[in-house]
Structures are given as structure tokens and as C-alpha cells.
């Protein structure tokens, strides 16, 4: 593990991709806007390990028509459709404010086709203040691009390979759980020399209004997130860590509200975690997770969070 991540003095801090993270708790793309709403109204986002901003495309996108969200058992479906102001607006108007906070800024990037992905990558490669890129090839809510790139290993390999040629910034790939075998898309990313994997994006779902007798979301389907998907994320992290854990860092996302949830991700093999939907119903959740992780390490006598990464794999059930 120390080959890809170097522990620093504080029990939660380390150097990953040559970037210093004060802790391994990040906020997930699409669940934190661009960070400023929370920074200006709720708490100091400098406390976070990193902020992964809402998906950015080259051109602005208006997003999907409402209704965009619906609650489901212990979760929610969303179909926002990657509404965003475009990278130029982001870099001129949002990023300068975001840079005032002492946290790592990761840009989630998206394109409708390969050309747009590459244009976004090229632009953000030259954008000061963006520390790393998270490639969104798994959004289930847009007609073009998105999931189409994330479900076919060959297409994914080509995209990651090309992006790696044009950017020197660390490139993480956020994988879709809507595949038969996630280790295949993970393998494509490893072979294309991605710097990290982010597991998992939302699961494709649908909710139906029984009175109106039609799907609730305007786009009919949406991405399922929230506590309901925690075991799916943990299972997929575990599977990918088992195969590629020694060669590529995994960032866990999916269903985390508490430190205990986050610990499952770490034990399965995640080196960092992202908090998504919990930001909505428990806005201080990322801070509670940071605190809870520290408490857990103390209680268990660990000196550093990296000591538990992938530890669940040592337990063999026969």
C-alpha cells in the first residue's frame, strides 16, 4: 500500500498522487454543488480532505426537466442530468472563490462524446487550482456519453488512455456499478494507466407513482444513492481491491453516512471515501465521519488509517 500512498504524521493524513490530503474524507460529485453553498452558509470546507465538484462539461448544460428527485426506501433516485455552467464559467467565477479554502479540489469531468471529454481534460489540465480530475463515465442520467463510456471496457480504455496523454494531473475514473463485472472496467483503467479508481456511481433505478400510474421522474429512470447502496459499493470495492489493490488506489463512494459506514469501505480496500447523499439529510456528515474515524483508530490502537485499508481481505471464510 505504501507504494501508492505515503502516510504523513497525522493519523488521517497522507500523500496520494503527490498531493497532500489532510484526511481521507471527500465530498462526492453531484452531492455538494461546487462547495460554495456549504462554505458560505454551513461550515468551513477546509476541514475536508477534498471537494469533488459537480460534473463539468465543456459547454453549459441545462440539465433535465423536473421532477428530478424522488425518495425511495433508505435512498433516493436522482436525474439532474449534469446541469452545469461549463468549465469556462467555473474557472472564472467559481474556482477563484473555492481556492480560498484549504482543501484539495478535484474536478469531475464529463463530455457528450470523446472530443468534449478531451477538450474538458485539456482545459482543466491548464487550470490552476484544480488538483486532480475525476472522469465521469458512469452518469446514468444523460442520453449521450456518460454510461456508454463506462460500460464497455475497450471504449473506456481508449478514453482514459487519450486523456492520460493530454493531462499531467492525476486522473481518477469513477466507475459505474451498472455492469455485470466491475473488475473488467477497472482492468481497462489500470491498463490505460489511470491514477485512481472511484467506486461506485449510482445504480440505475425507477420509481412509479401508483395513483398516476407512471414513472415519477421526468426522465423515467434515475440514479439510486443513499444508505440502500452501501453493501453494493462495499462488495465492488472488495472485488476490485482483490484484483488490483496493489497497483491502483481505490476511492470508495456509496451509502456512507457515518464513520462505521466509511470503515467498511476502508476495510474493503478504499484509501479514501466520498460522502454523497448524506450531505443532503445530514449536512455535517463528512465532519462526523472524520471525527468518528479518529475515534475508531484510537479505540483500536491504530496509528494510521492506512493500516486498515483492505484489511477485510485477510479474513478467509472457509
Amino acid at each position: 500500500m505504501e507504494k501508492i500512498v505515503k502516510p504523513l504524521e497525522d493519523s488521517l493524513s497522507y500523500e496520494l498522487f503527490g498531493i497532500k490530503f489532510k484526511n481521507p474524507v471527500w465530498t462526492a460529485s453531484g452531492c455538494f454543488s461546487y462547495g460554495l453553498e456549504v462554505a458560505e452558509n454551513l461550515y468551513d470546507i477546509s476541514k475536508l480532505g477534498a471537494v469533488v465538484v459537480k460534473g463539468l462539461s465543456y459547454k453549459p448544460r441545462t440539465g433535465n426537466p423536473p421532477q428530478r428527485i424522488v425518495e425511495t426506501p433508505a435512498g433516493m433516485l436522482n436525474s439532474i442530468g449534469l446541469q452545469n455552467p461549463g468549465i469556462e464559467y467555473f474557472s472564472k467565477n467559481i474556482l477563484p472563490k473555492l481556492r480560498n479554502y484549504d482543501t484539495v479540489i478535484i474536478a469531475n469531468v464529463f463530455g457528450e462524446d470523446e472530443e468534449e471529454y478531451l477538450k474538458v481534460g485539456e482545459f482543466l489540465d491548464k487550470t490552476d487550482g484544480v488538483h486532480a480530475l475525476e472522469l465521469n463515465v458512469s452518469c446514468p442520467n444523460v442520453k449521450k456519453g456518460g454510461i456508454a463510456f463506462g460500460s464497455d471496457p475497450e471504449t473506456l480504455y481508449n478514453l482514459v488512455y487519450k486523456l492520460k496523454q493530454i493531462t499531467n494531473k492525476p486522473l481518477l475514473v469513477k466507475l459505474s456499478p451498472n455492469v455485470t463485472d466491475i473488475t473488467q472496467t477497472a482492468q481497462a483503467c489500470v491498463e490505460a494507466k489511470a491514477d485512481g479508481l472511484v467506486l461506485i456511481n449510482t445504480l440505475l433505478g425507477m420509481a412509479i407513482d401508483v395513483n398516476k400510474e407512471q414513472p415519477i421522474l421526468a426522465t423515467k429512470t434515475g440514479g439510486l444513492s443513499g444508505p440502500a447502496i452501501l453493501p453494493v459499493a462495499v462488495r465492488m470495492i472488495y472485488q476490485v481491491f482483490e484484483k488490483y489493490g496493489s497497483s491502483i488506489p481505490i476511492v470508495g463512494v456509496g451509502g456512507i453516512t457515518t464513520a462505521e459506514d466509511a470503515l467498511q469501505h476502508f476495510l474493503a480496500g478504499a484509501v479514501a471515501v466520498q460522502i454523497g447523499t448524506a450531505n443532503f439529510y445530514d449536512p455535517y456528515s463528512p465532519l462526523k465521519v472524520i471525527e468518528g474515524l479518529e475515534e475508531h483508530l484510537n479505540k483500536k490502537g491504530y496509528k494510521h488509517i492506512l493500516e486498515i485499508v483492505g484489511k477485510a481481505h485477510k479474513l478467509k471464510i472457509t
Binding site: 454551513l42 446541469q83 447523499t277
Partner: peptide, 16 residues
């Protein structure tokens, strides 16, 4: 009013 997940601008769900 609208279906909203957060109430403080981060989910972009409650749009008009």
C-alpha cells in the same frame, strides 16, 4: 415549494 433533498442549494433537485 418543490421536491428537494437538501434545502440549501447542493442537490440541484428542486429546480424551476
Amino acid at each position: 415549494e418543490s421536491k428537494m433533498a437538501c434545502g440549501f442549494g447542493i442537490c440541484i433537485g428542486c429546480v424551476i
